[in-house]
Design a protein around this nucleic acid. Structure first.
Length: 418
RNA sequence: GCGGGUAUAGCUCAGGGGUUAGAGCGCCUGACUGUGGCUCAGGAGGCCGCGGGUUCGAGACCCGCUACCCGCCCCA
């Protein structure tokens, strides 16, 4: 094999694209139900955009960005996430002056220099939602409700939203101190690398998979103990709203985010079907992001949902079913019927049916085999006899049912036999 | 970035130093010259991941590379 797709990238083959369509169609429909409009932003941005927003110590910025210098000597980065570019566009076009609320959706690839694994790619795809301009807990609840509705529509019903609050800077500081204090003994026995990581961002310890770390973290009081009154009230209110909306959730004090711009609410939906990767989606509130980009303080909340990860889970659950086939396959039973077959196919296509025709002049047997293989619903057989009579044989594939119909009535007959 | 595993037909996999490399599934053709699926028969299809090495001889053994899988890490 001469060439192969770059490491960590995937081809979506014709036989599988219907899975993507199902997920994207479902996402667009759910977005529409809640009034979200799509935004499309460039594949690459000014490097600074991500350096500023993702967090200097985050893995994304420190080692995962695809950054290069273009011919105009600009530092360019392929987008490693979807939110910052969307907020940049919003600000650039002044779509959200103070007082307005914007609901946006997007479907985008993003790029991170990762070590590939199951559910972890260098070019993954994400469907995302952003609700910009509202500090109301109802905004948080809406985003989570849409997210869970999306998964429900796809048939992924075994999961719940895992909810946490990180509070704002003041209480987060106190919380960090508490983590460091309670895990001192554990940290003393760890490598300098881990100590450094935890010193920079103590929250990381909370979702560690190391059993010793998990044990040490047990003595740390839940974040909610540190929340200021306002944050605490918001957190409680979100839970009330989710309960009212019948959205399945549970509190998960271990949930933190990899991007530094999150404030207060954070949530994830997880699945055990993803191997070492656990998150199907991740989201939360980012009240300081737009201000960080030089805009007015604009409270916002959003979510990013991994498309490949949804496919993994849905495949595992057998939620896709058989790929769709064409409505009909026109079988040319004699060469002299070629034009008539093409004409019939054209008429049916004009009526919106998906129609396949043999182009290799193969035997009738072979054409019927193709028809069967293509999963077409009907085979329409046209030969000398039919041409002479102005009829078509309509064969319902899957059963042995076959009728002869005048050409003009084929459409009606197909509907009746469906 | 670290550790472990794997790489043979389109797919799933057997073959573990000795001629022309195998199976199942899939694909193509045919089984009283106008009827698919099931069955039967035939056929096409392999730089045995890539590059080096050991050997009289390598798909098998050794080294390097690449990719994938599983952990760590990280997250969608």
């Amino acid at each position: 094999m001469r060439f192969q797709a770059p490491r960590g990238t995937e081809d979506v083959l014709p036989a599988d694209s219907y899975k993507w369509h199902k997920i994207e169609d479902t996402f667009r429909e759910v977005s529409r139900l809640f009034g979200y409009c799509e935004i499309r932003t460039p594949t690459f941005e000014d490097t600074d955009l991500f350096a500023r927003t993702a967090g200097e110590t985050s893995d994304i910025v420190t080692k995962q960005m695809y950054t290069f210098t273009d011919k105009g000597d600009r530092s360019i980065t392929l987008k490693p996430e979807g939110t910052a570019p969307a907020m940049r566009a919003l600000l650039q076009h002044n779509l959200c002056p103070p007082g307005t609320i914007v609901r946006m959706s997007y479907v985008t690839p993003f790029f991170r220099y990762e070590r590939p694994q199951k559910g972890r790619l260098r070019e993954p795809h994400q469907a995302g939602l952003e609700l910009v301009g509202s500090a109301s807990p109802a905004a948080d609840a809406e985003i989570i409700e849409i997210t869970m509705r999306f998964y429900r529509e796809l048939g992924i019903t075994e999961t719940v939203a895992m909810l946490n609050s990180l509070g704002r800077s003041a209480c987060r500081h106190a919380f960090r101190e508490a983590i460091l204090e309670r895990t001192k003994a554990y940290l003393a026995g760890q490598s300098t690398e881990i100590q450094e990581k935890v010193r920079k961002n103590p929250l990381r310890l909370l979702d560690s998979k190391d059993p010793d770390a998990q044990e040490a973290v047990k003595s740390v009081p839940p974040v909610t103990d540190f929340l200021e009154d306002e944050s605490r009230q918001r957190f409680d209110r979100i839970q009330e709203l989710l309960t009212e909306a019948n959205v399945p959730y549970r509190l998960a004090p271990e949930i933190v985010r990899g991007l530094d711009y999150y404030t207060e609410t954070v949530f994830e939906v997880q699945s055990t079907r993803l191997g070492a990767q656990s998150a199907l989606c991740g989201g939360g509130r980012y009240d300081d992001l737009i201000a960080e980009l030089g805009g007015p303080s604009t409270p916002s909340v959003g979510v990013g949902m991994g498309i490949e990860r949804a496919i993994i889970v849905m495949d595992d659950l057998g939620l896709f079913g058989a790929p769709p086939g064409p409505d009909a396959f026109v079988v040319q039973a004699a060469q002299s019927a070629r034009a008539a077959c093409q004409g019939l196919a054209r008429t049916l296509r004009d009526a919106g049916l998906s129609v396949l025709v043999d182009i290799e002049e193969r035997s009738m047997k072979s054409q019927l085999r193709q028809a069967d293989k293509s999963a077409a619903r009907f085979a329409l057989i046209l030969g000398d006899e039919e041409c002479a009579k102005g009829t078509v044989q309509i064969k319902k594939l899957g059963t042995s049912e076959q009728i002869e119909s005048p050409v003009g009535e084929v459409l009606d007959k197909l509907k009746a036999m469906r």
